[in-house]
Simulated assay, not measured.
Amino acid sequence: MIFVALLHAVNLGARRKVPMADLRALLTGLRLAEVRTYIQSGNAVFSADPETDLRGRLEAALEAQFGFPVPMTLRTAHEWREAARGCPAHLRDEAVVVAFLRDPPDPGRVEALRGRDVTPERWEVVGQQLYQTVPEGIRNLRLSAAVIERHLGVKVTVRNERTVQTIAAMLDT
């Protein structure tokens, strides 16, 4: 089965460095096949046999290798393709980022988040993704990853639309 792994908050500054060559070597050493990475923000595509706690095994190996916890979001190739196609039409008139939720959000918490005014941004949760417009640029988001995590109670990692679509294309090659 093909998986996409998204590492949370790596390579953003001087700390929490995870070189992609080292990530590929680590994943290959864990007997994952066809390991590929995309850009320096911690995106990996690989083949593996499905197992009960693949994410936990990978997170433990990452922490042992790099010396700090590295939360990870996993999607199957099928789930990734759905996410790549899943942006609601009413958001597509602007630049969009996708916040990948590590776990399913509680519907009550999603509704509570709707009460937060993040104008001019618009957003929608579809499955385990939060699609969000970025009219003032990603650095100026009012609905940041930290705000999403705090309100929804799940770990989040954000990728821009170009990254999402590029990884989807990688799945077909």
Rank of each mutant, 00 (worst) to 15 (best):
L23A: 10
R92M: 13
L32H: 11
A83E: 05
M72Y: 02
A64V: 03
A9W: 06
R36K: 15
V125K: 07
R114T: 12
H78R: 15
V45F: 11
F46Y: 02
T37G: 05
S41C: 05
E124F: 04
I167T: 06
G42Q: 02
N160E: 05
N11V: 13
A48N: 05
M72T: 15
T166W: 09
E161G: 06
A89I: 03
A84T: 12
G115N: 07
V10A: 13
G127R: 04
A5S: 12
N43P: 00
V147F: 08
E94R: 15
I148S: 10
A5G: 14
E82H: 01
G29Y: 00
V164C: 13
M1T: 14
E161P: 01
S144D: 01
V96W: 01
A77K: 04
A99V: 10
V110Y: 00
R102C: 12
G86Q: 02
R109Q: 11
A61E: 06
T52R: 15
E111F: 08
A44K: 09
W123I: 09
A77L: 01
V96A: 10
A83R: 02
R85P: 07
P135E: 08
F66P: 11
V10G: 10
E63L: 02
A168I: 05
P104Q: 05
L27V: 06
V156C: 00
D93C: 03
E111W: 11
R162W: 06
S144N: 06
L30D: 06
L58F: 00
E59V: 04
Q132T: 12
T73Q: 07
R81M: 14
A145S: 15
E79F: 00
L91N: 02
E121Q: 12
L58M: 14
L74I: 02
V125D: 05
A83G: 04
V10D: 10
V156S: 06
T76Y: 10
M170A: 02
D106L: 12
E79G: 06
F100P: 08
L27D: 09
P88Q: 03
V96M: 07
R109V: 06
L12V: 14
P104M: 11
A168K: 01
V134P: 05
A89Q: 10
V147N: 08
L12C: 07
I167Y: 05
D93L: 01
D172H: 07
F68L: 05
A112K: 13
V164I: 15
A33K: 12
G29Q: 05
E34K: 15
R109C: 01
P135A: 02
Q165I: 08
R85M: 10
D49H: 12
V4R: 13
P107L: 07
G42C: 08
D22K: 13
R116P: 04
G137A: 15
Q129C: 15
A84V: 07
R85Q: 14
M1A: 13
V147E: 15
Q128L: 05
V158F: 02
G127E: 00
R57T: 14
V96K: 04
T76K: 00
L152H: 02
I167E: 11
